[in-house]
C-alpha cells in the first residue's frame, strides 16, 4: 500500500521526466525546502558552498531522472535493479548532496585534512564507494558520459567558462579571447583549453578504473 508521500514523489518524478513546468518547480521546491532545513546535519559548509552543492545536486537528480536511473512504475519510484527506491526522493537527493559535498571537500584542504577538526568531522561522515557508484554512475551503459558530466560540475570556474563558451555557445577562440581579457593570447587560450580537456580525461580515466573496476 502506497503512502501519500510515495504517491506524491512518484507524481513529481514522472512530471519531471515529462518536463512538466509546474511539476519541475514543485520538485525543486520540495528538494530545496528539505535541503535548507537539513544540510547542516549532513555536511559542514558556508551558505555559498551549500547553495553550489544544492545546484549541482539538483542537476544530478534531474539527469538521473532523465536517464531513467530512477523512474516511476505502477505508481512507485524505482531505482537500481528495477527495485523500489530505498527511502524517499528527499533522502535520495540528500545522498547526492552528501557525495557532492565530499567531492567539494576533497578540493578544499581544510575539509579533507584529517589533522584539522573540519577534516576529522568530514572523515567521520565516511565515504561509501558503493553509494558513490549507485547514486552517481550507472555502470551498465554510457558510464563515461556520466563520469564526464560529474567532473564538469566540479571544474574550475575558468575551465568551465572556456569549455562552455567553446563547446556550448560555439564561439571562436578570437571571440572568447575578447570575452576573457585576462588571457593574453590566442595560443595561451588554446593551451588552457587543451589543459582543461586533458585534466578531464585523466580524472575520468582514474574514476573509471578506480571505482568501477574495484
Amino acid at each position: 500500500m502506497r503512502t501519500s508521500m510515495q504517491e506524491k514523489e512518484a507524481r513529481l518524478v514522472a512530471g519531471m521526466y515529462d518536463r512538466h513546468r509546474r511539476t519541475q518547480y514543485e520538485l525543486y521546491a520540495y528538494c530545496a525546502n528539505y535541503f535548507w532545513g537539513n544540510y547542516r546535519g549532513v555536511f559542514f559548509a558556508d551558505e555559498n558552498t551549500a547553495a553550489e552543492i544544492f545546484q549541482n545536486s539538483f542537476v544530478k537528480l534531474w539527469e538521473n531522472i532523465e536517464s531513467r536511473k530512477i523512474y516511476v512504475e505502477q505508481g512507485r519510484v524505482m531505482g537500481k535493479d528495477r527495485k523500489p527506491l530505498d527511502g524517499s526522493i528527499r533522502t535520495y537527493f540528500m545522498g547526492i548532496a552528501r557525495i557532492k559535498y565530499l567531492e567539494w571537500a576533497r578540493q578544499h584542504p581544510v575539509y579533507s585534512d584529517p589533522e584539522t577538526e573540519m577534516g576529522k568531522k568530514t572523515g567521520e561522515k565516511g565515504f561509501d564507494v558503493q553509494d558513490y557508484l549507485d547514486i552517481l554512475y550507472d555502470y551498465s551503459d554510457n558510464v563515461m558520459l556520466e563520469i564526464v558530466a560529474d567532473l564538469i560540475s566540479q571544474m574550475s570556474p575558468r575551465c568551465s567558462e572556456i569549455l562552455t563558451k567553446f563547446y556550448y555557445e560555439e564561439k571562436d577562440l578570437d571571440v572568447i579571447l575578447l570575452e576573457i581579457p585576462s588571457i593574453e593570447s590566442k595560443n595561451a587560450l588554446k593551451t588552457k583549453k587543451h589543459k582543461c580537456l586533458d585534466t578531464l580525461r585523466v580524472s575520468a580515466k582514474e574514476i573509471y578504473h578506480r571505482y568501477l573496476n574495484a
Binding site: 545546484q55 539538483f58 542537476v59 564526464v148 558530466a149 564538469i152 569549455l163 578531464l200
Partner: peptide, 29 residues
C-alpha cells in the same frame, strides 16, 4: 580523444539547459 570531446559537448549542453531552467525555478522559489 574524440569520444571524450563528444561527451564534454553533450554534458555541458545538458548542464547549461538545466541551469537555465533552474534559474527561473530559483527566482520563483
Amino acid at each position: 580523444q574524440l569520444e571524450l570531446t563528444q561527451h564534454v559537448k553533450m554534458a555541458i549542453a545538458s548542464r547549461e539547459e538545466k541551469l537555465k531552467v533552474m534559474a527561473s525555478l530559483q527566482w520563483q522559489y
